[in-house]
Simulated scan of single mutants.
Amino acid sequence: MPGDTSIAETVPQNTSKVYDGTLEPEEIWWRDHQLWLQERGYQLRPRFSPGWIPSWKGTDKKWWECEDGLSPSIFRVLDAVRTSDGAMVSLKQISQSDHPYETEISMYLSSSQRGSDPRNHCVPVYEVLDVPDDPDMKLLVMPLLRPYDDPPLETVGEAVEFFRQIFEGLQFIHENHVAHRDCMNLNIMVDPKPLYPDMYHPHATDLKRDWSGFARHYTRTKEPTKYIFIDFGISRKYGAEEKSPREYPIWGGDKTVPEFHRSNDPCNPFPTDIYYLGNLIREDFLQSPRGVEFMEPLVSDMVQDDPSKRPTIDEVISRFAELRKSLSRRKLRSRLVDPEETKLLRFYRNTRHIFRTAYYIMARHSAVPTPKPVS
């Protein structure tokens, strides 16, 4: 990152309205429950303490220059620190009336019985808190995660490992008779702990936790990590005997599902999950040449208009394994190219990539960075 980039430039600006850094109306709930959460072992940032006085008041500083000036990007999800061990966690509000199955399904997939399966890429739920003054509300306590492509994937091998993990993760979900129904790119995250050994500020994610500078991070090749499915708000769980359930269409984040555009009739949600993952790869990796064009035949089948013609997740995994075998080490270590990079930037990145790859080879870092299973 250029040395003349200021910390203030990394802070996203709120352009939808005039914003002065003070609490948004949606943040009041968190402030009013701060003491209760503290009693339960979760410390919120100073911004949410009762009687909070903005640190920039009475100074020459601007709100965007101060740690406590940042509001959450999603108000129903807030970061916290678990006081027992200092771990950074996420607290998610769940309205039982709006999402009656989310807590149940999240806990089912996160149970100790299923958590030991290495194919389980579902977000773990550490605890479910009953909100004392709202019987309809629960809080899910989960790890703090980052978007799957932040920081960006850099090599074909890193992309191949991402594909492998999301395919086996969906296989695990489907084998447990659950349809995710919204497994698009925003609902697949990455475990940041291997990449960011000292972690980072949860709402200025390029910065250190204490706001003192930029957070250091590693590549996935140097420190392999795990990808994780989140948000089971519109998911459904079925009995083992229900081989082809039917559900009325429900729109998730991806608005391109062909069967939803054709009809409002009930349809099988499992092929729709296949479409979501295929479309993720199509939109994020294939629409502009980046180096993973070998995925095109498989992805084309995954996003077919006719759901009945899409492969099952078992078939996807089998075909992907054959594709993986066809890739040379040189191909796997090649760089994912950003189609928008300038010639000068491409020269810089190519040069850096050559030296970095030489180091990875000498240090025996695998071209396909698979994380070690948790013992």
Rank of each mutant, 00 (worst) to 15 (best):
S55I: 00
W56L: 07
G58M: 03
K61S: 14
K61W: 12
K61G: 08
K62T: 15
W64K: 11
C66S: 14
G69M: 08
L70W: 13
L70E: 13
S71H: 15
I74E: 14
R76Y: 06
R76S: 07
V77N: 15
L78N: 12
D79C: 09
V81E: 02
V81I: 04
R82V: 01
D85C: 00
S90P: 06
L91M: 09
L91D: 02
L91C: 06
K92R: 07
Q93M: 14
S95F: 08
S97N: 11
D98N: 10
H99S: 14
E104V: 11
I105W: 08
S106F: 09
S106L: 06
M107D: 11
L109I: 06
S111M: 05
S111P: 05
S112C: 13
S112Q: 08
Q113V: 05
G115C: 08
G115E: 09
S116E: 14
D117T: 08
P118Y: 08
R119H: 03
N120I: 01
N120H: 04
C122I: 00
V123H: 00
V123C: 00
V125R: 03
V125A: 07
Y126R: 12
E127V: 00
V128K: 12
V131R: 12
D136N: 11
L144D: 10
P147E: 05
Y148F: 14
Y148D: 11
Y148P: 15
D149L: 13
D149P: 15
D150Y: 11
P151T: 07
P152C: 01
P152T: 01
E154T: 09
E161K: 03
E161R: 01
F162H: 02
F162N: 04
F163R: 01
I166N: 10
I166Q: 06
E168N: 09
